[in-house]
């Protein structure tokens, strides 16, 4: 399964991009040419170094407070990657647990989970996360919590129908007939069959989490204002679009590459693991 996916071009390309962003996040303090919070009010809104009026010391220019855009971009990867990894895993744990329970047990439990998903799906995700952030207050931990509380349905919805399909297979009935306990049946016969789907969904969810964090930070409801996030950089850079376009373009491209990395990885996995799923994204 792992070897097969490693032969896919998408998996390799996506994996390399994700690893590169992860490396930037981990090594930001050593890679960054400047202190990302260091203000220099004499050199504000510098364009990129190759543009007219650019300064070679500030490769992608500076923002309205004279802070180095490149350094902030590298540090911004830390927030993006923490959110991507932790929130996606959290959403997976909540959504998958409910999906296995509902799909395997069925009956009223399945009904209840199904209705809960209905209720959640009637909220557009952006609106629900905004409302949650209003209730929870800003901060990295709350961003992660909000994403988990919004996006567990993405796992639950798709995985539940897959579990129902697998649970109907005769080999699951056969396992029960030879004396497997419920726990052993689920863990040995059902979960392994759905792992490819879970892995694929997890990867795609990481990309979604990056986007949601950027959206929340963009409207000022994400991480605290002293933390560096790409969404905040975009909001700041929007005002300086004429003087220093890279203030805006750099975080936009960073988000695009990160999300594209996760999507390529997820798409490649979906193909090489032959996962069928309904498409749909934020």
């Amino acid at each position: 399964m792992i070897r097969r996916s490693l032969r896919s071009g998408r998996v390799i390309a996506g994996g390399l991009i994700v690893l590169a962003v992860l490396a930037c996040a981990l090594a930001a303090p050593w890679l960054a040419p400047h202190d990302p919070d260091e203000q220099n009010l004499l050199t504000t809104l510098l364009p990129a170094s190759w543009q007219a009026g650019g300064d070679p010391a500030y490769w992608l220019g500076t923002d309205s407070l004279g802070r180095d855009v490149l350094s902030r971009l590298l540090f911004g990867a830390r927030v993006a990657m923490s959110v991507a990894l932790i929130a996606a895993f959290g959403a997976m744990i909540v959504g998958a647990a409910l999906a296995y329970l509902a799909g395997y047990v069925g009956g009223w439990l399945d009904w209840l989970v199904g209705r809960a998903v209905d209720v959640w799906m009637s909220f557009p995700p952006v609106i629900l996360s905004l409302i949650l952030m209003t209730g929870l207050g800003t901060g990295l931990r709350n961003v992660i919590l909000a994403i988990v509380l919004v996006d567990w349905t993405r796992f639950c919805r798709v995985l539940r129908s897959e579990v129902i399909v697998v649970a109907r297979r005769d080999y699951v009935a056969a396992a029960r007939l030879v004396g497997f306990s419920h726990w052993r049946t689920v863990s040995r016969e059902i979960v392994p069959a759905t792992i490819p789907l879970v892995v694929t969904l997890l990867t795609l969810e990481m990309g979604i989490a990056v986007v949601v964090e950027a959206i929340l930070s963009f409207v000022g409801l994400g991480v605290r204002s002293d933390q560096i996030a790409w969404g905040q950089m975009i909001a700041d850079g929007r005002d300086a679009i004429y003087q220093a376009p890279w203030n805006l373009l750099a975080p936009v491209l960073a988000i695009f590459f990160t999300v594209a990395g996760f999507n390529l990885l997820g798409d490649g996995l979906r193909r090489s693991l032959d996962v069928r799923m309904t498409e749909g994204r934020e």
């Binding site: 990309g207 376009p245 805006l248 695009f256 999507n263 994204r281």
Partner: peptide
């Protein structure tokens, strides 16, 4: 299409303005 899916609506909005 995979790459297109990687651009959320608010990035399209910013890119179009730009």
């Amino acid at each position: 299409t995979t790459l297109m899916m990687s651009v959320p609506e608010f990035l399209w909005a910013l890119l179009f303005i730009f």
